[in-house]
């Protein structure tokens, strides 16, 4: 059965949502989502450290969507579902500890051919210890390389480093060319 994006989005935004977005991604969209996120977080009683973590991870997650979504080339005034990305920030209350857990969830389409590399990369990062992540981060920071997409190759590792948690992901079959890739970062 083919993946139903709208249904997936509805299911994931039923509860606990602070910020959610489904649509195409641009520099302006990222700016306005970050403004909204700052607004929402400022009204809450979150310590500065957690607030900064959430903001940082959101910036990086959104810019990963901007740089790494694969969408078909189509005329500007036409829209295709594959152009859409998802960004969700959730706050889940933990009654026992009287604290909150935060989750950033993203989704974007990628070419089927990129699935394996991406999966291996995340599995590798999840496998590494905190110290190993730190060392790898510094190595990539200092390698003088920028990808053709303008990324520094640090986006995914930064999510692991800052959150201190493993990344949870899923690949949903969309059609013969595209996969919908979802990522969940616990903060």
């Amino acid at each position: 059965m083919s993946f139903d994006l709208l249904r997936w989005y509805r299911k994931n935004t039923e509860n606990d949502v602070l910020v959610s977005y489904l649509g195409s991604v641009s520099e302006d969209v990222i700016s306005s989502l970050l403004d909204k996120l700052e607004d929402v977080l400022e009204k809450k009683n979150i310590d500065l450290k957690t607030l900064k973590k959430i903001y940082h991870i959101s910036v990086e997650a959104l810019q990963n969507l901007y740089h790494h979504s694969d969408a078909p080339k189509i005329p500007k005034n036409k829209s295709a579902i594959e152009k859409n990305v998802v960004f969700i920030l959730k706050e889940i209350k933990d009654d026992e500890n009287k604290s909150c857990k935060y989750y950033v969830i993203t989704g974007n389409f990628i070419n089927k051919s990129n699935t394996r590399v991406l999966k291996e990369r995340i599995d590798q990062l999840n496998f590494l210890s905190k110290d190993e992540i730190k060392i790898l981060y510094k190595l990539i920071l200092n390698n003088d390389q920028f990808s053709e997409k303008g990324g520094g190759g640090l986006g995914m590792i930064d999510l692991v480093k800052r959150s201190g948690n493993n990344l949870t992901y899923n690949f949903y079959n969309f059609d013969s060319n595209y996969i919908f890739f979802t990522l969940r970062i616990a903060i």
Binding site: L141, G151, D158
Partner: peptide, 12 residues
């Protein structure tokens, strides 16, 4: 206050 990973390389 904040910098993203692509800035981090440029700052280096």
């Amino acid at each position: 206050e904040y910098f993203n990973t692509s800035s981090s390389k440029c700052i280096l």
